[in-house]
Design a protein around this nucleic acid. Structure first.
Lengths: 208, 208
DNA sequence: CAAAATTAATCAATCGTTTAATTAATTAAC
DNA sequence: GTTAATTAATTAAACGATTGATTAATTTTG
């Protein structure tokens, strides 16, 4: 293993710990000392690797944003119905929420704040692009009369808001659902229940 | 006007400014100096009136919690159908979201964090109580076969998650909806659109 | 040996809070 | 009703603690 690989792993390790702490306590509430202690590195390493605490924060976010692809292969598929496309996208969205729980906690908390920096406008643009894809499918379906005349904008808020509610408010959702643990088996079960619920909901909402 | 009334108004004024700042930037990001400057009072007045920054934070939250009543008159109404009860409650929930936007921003952000203090357990209990009322109506409706067999827990997450998505993510929702301003007229229109959307959604979701 | 990585110690700035002094308002005494 | 005593409200200044960041020295690596 080369030194650059070790440095890379160390950087990633710091980012992993940072992501966890930022998601759990929020950016301001996490001190560089607490961060360094949890990651078991010297405080100076944060500046050394990332420049500053804020740059680390942005790096943590950027790492996840880059992994968010657009599902063009679904959107452009000529053989899928409007509803099938939508249900596939719902599936993808929920998978992403569960894959990147910590990131979503950070991101949506940030979106509720007053504009913090350029990266969030970038993040916003990325998401708005995805939202507009959903919106376009719904509106196109309405125009082609395969969907009921629903409020497309708020329908998207429901599609995003439901998994967000579950993922972002861990403790709360856990109690609503009467969950006892948060282990992987439960998580998978919950994810599937969520998918079924949302797909059912959307199907009934849009079908004539 | 007596001095106690002046002191009361001054306290309320500080809490108003604090609520706005906490909602906008988060608890840690708001310094007592910024707070005092915005409220145009001396920094020491925060300790003088509230004891500490955290106590002010708790006071801001407690003020709103106390105003949250339970809608027993709807729940216990013998003449209303299950669906009517639910739709009335949805109406109430959305009204509350819009009446106390700032409070809801604070509260839900807080619920995404690791437990901060006793007041949040109290807050949690209060909300869980309300959620369980909704859940009970849905489950009772299913049992009495007036509702479809839906996932009651996730249905509640949709009912709460949709208005939360709109209220908490101002900037984002604004862009999704293609809004240009956030004035009162627009707000009222949006509130009604949200109500119609959610009531429609729930009705279709639960009706056989 | 040179470059990269890591450390402990320290920096100035800001944090929440408190102090001690002053002013304003209320009550008590006459 | 005026004055004196008492309490409440307000202020500027300072407190120690913690913050993010940097330094200069040291160790590790290639």
């Amino acid at each position: 293993m080369s030194s650059t690989e070790i440095a890379y792993e160390k950087k990633e390790h710091i980012m992993d710990i940072a992501e966890k702490l930022f998601a759990e306590y929020g950016y301001e509430a996490v001190s560089t000392r607490k961060l360094a202690a949890d990651a078991q590195v010297n405080i100076a390493m944060i500046s050394y690797y990332f420049g500053s605490k804020e740059d680390l924060y942005l790096a943590v976010i950027e790492r996840r944003i880059l992994s968010l692809r657009t599902a063009t292969h679904i959107i452009d598929d000529k053989h899928m119905t409007h509803l099938d496309k939508l249900l596939h996208l719902v599936d993808m969205i929920i998978d992403r929420f569960f894959e990147n729980r910590l990131f979503h906690q950070i991101m949506y908390r940030e979106m509720g704040m007053s504009n913090r920096s350029k990266i969030f406008n970038f993040m916003m643009d990325k998401w708005l692009h995805n939202f507009n894809i959903l919106k376009h499918i719904i509106e196109d379906g309405i125009q082609k009369k395969v969907f009921k005349k629903v409020d497309a904008g708020f329908t998207i808020l429901t599609i995003i808001g439901t998994p967000r509610m579950y993922v972002q408010s861990d403790h709360m959702a856990q109690k609503i659902m009467n969950l006892k643990s948060l282990d992987e088996v439960y998580m998978l079960e919950m994810k599937n229940r969520l998918k079924n619920h949302l797909k059912d909901l959307i199907t009934n909402h849009l079908s004539k």
